[in-house]
Simulated scan of single mutants.
Amino acid sequence: MEQSLQPRAQGGRRRMERVGDARGLVLGYVNALNAVDEAMRAAIPSLERLADVLGLVHSRQISRRGQVGTYSYAVHGTGCRFVSDDGTEVDVDFAVDGSEIFDLWRLRWYGLSLPEPLDVTDQDLRTMSSQLCCCLVASSRSLTCGAARSENAIRLDLTGQTA
């Protein structure tokens, strides 16, 4: 009897570990995005919010690709990919109002780029992201739920303003 229950218990622990990994991945992404924001604003004093990078590129005040402190950046479409000196990638899109938007693909890519790569399932990411979406506060910034570009998108308001 004990042998038949043991695999279920192990499977349950594995499920909890995966969900815990997904939670850590989402929180790690948000923390990494905060670090990018701080570094960019320290290096470019005219930058009021991270989304303003797009305007600076479009007005040719900065190049589409470059290096700022320990981060390289590459502006693409409505977003930007930042890579830290350890190879960690944070890719983010920006809404018209300047909110940061990320999706499951960006979370997974972030996890795989970590010095110790972390790969979690889409379902675990979806579950954890929706749970965190309504309650996460990171560095006095709010994570705001909202459909952005797809059903997998999560919209961040990191401006400190309430919507």
Rank of each mutant, 00 (worst) to 15 (best):
M1P: 03
E2N: 10
E2T: 15
S4Q: 14
Q6P: 04
P7T: 06
P7H: 04
R8F: 08
A9I: 15
A9H: 02
Q10F: 13
R14K: 13
E17N: 09
E17C: 14
R18W: 05
R18E: 15
R18S: 08
V19P: 00
V19N: 08
D21P: 03
A22V: 08
R23D: 07
G24R: 10
L25H: 08
L25P: 04
V26W: 14
L27S: 13
G28T: 10
Y29R: 04
N31C: 03
N31D: 03
A32R: 01
L33T: 01
A35M: 08
V36W: 01
D37G: 02
D37N: 04
A39I: 13
A39F: 02
M40Q: 03
A43E: 12
P45W: 09
D52Q: 10
V53N: 02
V53R: 00
L54P: 07
G55W: 00
G55S: 11
G55Y: 01
L56Y: 01
S59C: 05
Q61R: 13
S63E: 08
R65V: 12
R65W: 05
G66L: 04
G66Q: 03
V68Q: 06
G69V: 03
Y71S: 01
S72D: 05
S72Y: 04
A74K: 02
V75C: 14
V75T: 13
V75L: 09
G77I: 10
C80M: 10
R81N: 11
V83Y: 00
V83E: 07
S84V: 06
D85G: 09
D86A: 06
G87S: 13
E89W: 00
D91F: 07
D91L: 10
D91I: 14
D91V: 13
V92M: 02
F94H: 05
F94G: 08
F94A: 13
A95V: 11
A95D: 12
V96C: 09
D97I: 05
S99A: 07
E100M: 13
F102W: 01
F102S: 01
F102P: 03
R106C: 01
R106T: 11
R106V: 14
W109Q: 14
Y110L: 05
L114N: 06
L114R: 05
E116Q: 10
P117F: 06
L118S: 09
D119G: 15
D119Y: 12
D119N: 13
T121Q: 05
Q123V: 04
Q123L: 02
Q123E: 10
D124M: 06
T127L: 11
T127Q: 00
T127S: 01
T127M: 03
S130D: 04
L132N: 02
C134P: 01
S139M: 09
S142Q: 07
S142R: 11
C145M: 06
A148E: 03
A148G: 04
S150C: 13
S150E: 12
E151F: 02
E151P: 07
E151Q: 02
N152P: 05
N152M: 15
I154Q: 09
I154R: 01
L158C: 12
L158P: 03
T159L: 12
G160K: 09
Q161R: 15
Q161H: 11
Q161C: 11
A163T: 13
